[in-house]
C-alpha cells in the first residue's frame, strides 16, 4: 500500500468561504485531488469534536476543515473559537495515534479558488505520504 493508497478525506467546509472557494476551484477548472468528500457547514465554529471523531471511526483517513480567514468570519468570531478547539482536538487525536498530517484547519475565502486547490492538494499529498490507513477506523479496530 504505497503509491496506490487512495485515502478517504472528509472536508468540513464553511458555507460562507471555503465551500464557495471549492465551488470556484471547480468552475474555473483548477485541478486538485478528488479524495475529499465535501460537507457544507455553517461556520468552522460549528465543528464539534464529534465531527472529527466520527469521521475517523467511520473510515476517514483525514479530516480537512475550511473556514474564513481571521477577522473575516461571517459570524464575527466563530473561526477564532474553532482554532482553539481544533488545536485541542488535534493534540488529543495525535496522542492516541492519529498522525497530525491527517488533520488540518485552513482559511480559504470564497474568492480563493486557486488557494483552495493548493491547500487541498498539499493536505491530500500529506495524507498519502503516510502510506497507511488511519489506525482509528472502526473496521480496522474490530477486525
Amino acid at each position: 500500500m504505497s503509491s496506490d493508497y487512495d485515502p478517504t478525506i472528509v472536508g468540513l467546509l464553511c458555507n460562507w468561504c471555503t465551500y464557495a472557494g471549492a465551488d470556484l476551484a471547480g468552475t474555473t477548472r483548477i485541478k486538485h485531488p478528488q479524495n475529499m468528500r465535501a460537507i457544507r457547514i455553517p461556520c468552522s465554529g460549528r465543528v464539534s469534536p464529534h465531527f472529527l471523531f466520527t469521521s475517523f471511526f467511520q473510515g476517514a483517513d483525514g479530516v480537512f476543515i475550511g473556514g474564513c480567514h481571521p477577522a473575516d468570519c461571517h459570524y464575527t468570531n466563530g473561526n477564532y473559537y474553532a482554532r482553539r478547539r481544533f488545536a485541542l482536538m488535534k493534540s488529543l487525536l495525535d496522542f492516541v495515534g492519529v498522525e497530525p498530517e491527517r488533520m488540518a484547519l485552513e482559511w480559504v475565502s470564497a474568492s480563493e479558488g486557486d488557494r483552495f486547490a493548493e491547500v487541498v492538494t498539499k493536505f491530500t499529498e500529506g495524507v498519502k505520504g503516510l502510506r497507511r490507513p488511519s489506525a482509528l477506523k472502526r473496521d480496522g479496530l474490530e477486525s
Partner: peptide, 14 residues
C-alpha cells in the same frame, strides 16, 4: 480567544 493565535495551527498546518 485571542486574535493572534495563528501559531496554534502550526506545526502541522499545511
Amino acid at each position: 480567544f485571542k486574535e493572534d493565535e495563528e501559531h496554534l495551527l502550526c506545526p502541522g498546518g499545511v
